[in-house]
């Protein structure tokens, strides 16, 4: 994952889960460990890409 604000890049687990944007969608808000900004994460796409990788 990458933070839009400070460009910090790291694994998803480094970005603390905050809350979902909409319970029936896979987009969540996570927190950048460096600048503490909100970072949106598509949990489903991220999981699929990780499994694919």
């Amino acid at each position: 994952m990458k933070c839009d604000k400070c460009n910090y890049e790291g694994s998803k687990n480094e970005f603390r889960y905050l809350y979902n944007v909409q319970i029936d969608e896979s987009i969540s808000c996570r927190e950048c460990p460096k600048c503490h900004s909100f970072v949106n994460c598509d949990e489903l796409a991220e999981e699929k890409s990780r499994k694919g990788a």
Partner: peptide, 21 residues
């Protein structure tokens, strides 16, 4: 098991459906 994670808001009422559900 309703699909909520730790950290997600709970539903907002007492009889209100889940938000957006």
């Amino acid at each position: 098991p309703n699909g909520r994670r730790l950290g997600d808001p709970l539903y907002d009422g007492g009889l209100s459906p889940g938000t957006g559900l």
